[in-house]
């Protein structure tokens, strides 16, 4: 298990949109390193052919406990009134949510 570099920690923090002060970054680097040393061991385990359990109820074999194919009928329910929807919105302009300018095309 490779220990985390500072650069890696910074990259992950950027991906997660988490601002970390430089002392936090340092602490994070060493703490994550320790945790990964401990838990990263699973990377080395051979699990060839073992199905992944994506849900805590057995989804891979239909049994009496499995409720698969849960779908919703296409029937509209009333929307939240705008004022209720945006009640906790930090910054509004009328009924629109305001954010700092998005660089045009910044979206993937």
């Amino acid at each position: 298990m490779p220990t985390l570099t500072r650069k890696e920690v910074e990259e992950i923090a950027l991906l997660a949109r988490l601002h970390l002060e430089s002392d936090e970054l340092e602490r994070m680097q060493s703490e994550l390193g320790v945790i990964l040393d401990h838990f990263g061991t699973i990377a080395a385990i051979d699990a060839t052919g073992i199905p992944a359990m994506t849900h805590a109820v057995a989804m891979d074999h239909a049994g009496p406990f499995v409720s698969l194919g849960v779908l919703r009928p296409d029937e509209p329910q009333p929307s939240l009134p705008v004022d209720e929807a945006l009640r906790g919105t930090p910054k509004r302009d009328g009924d629109l949510i305001v954010v700092p300018a998005i660089i045009p095309g910044a979206k993937e």
Partner: peptide, 18 residues
């Protein structure tokens, strides 16, 4: 008539965030 994952209605040209 409703969204992919919730029963919120789908329409075009309604007031914002309604």
């Amino acid at each position: 008539r409703t969204k992919a994952f919730s029963p919120s209605a789908v329409h075009f040209g309604e007031p914002p965030n309604s």
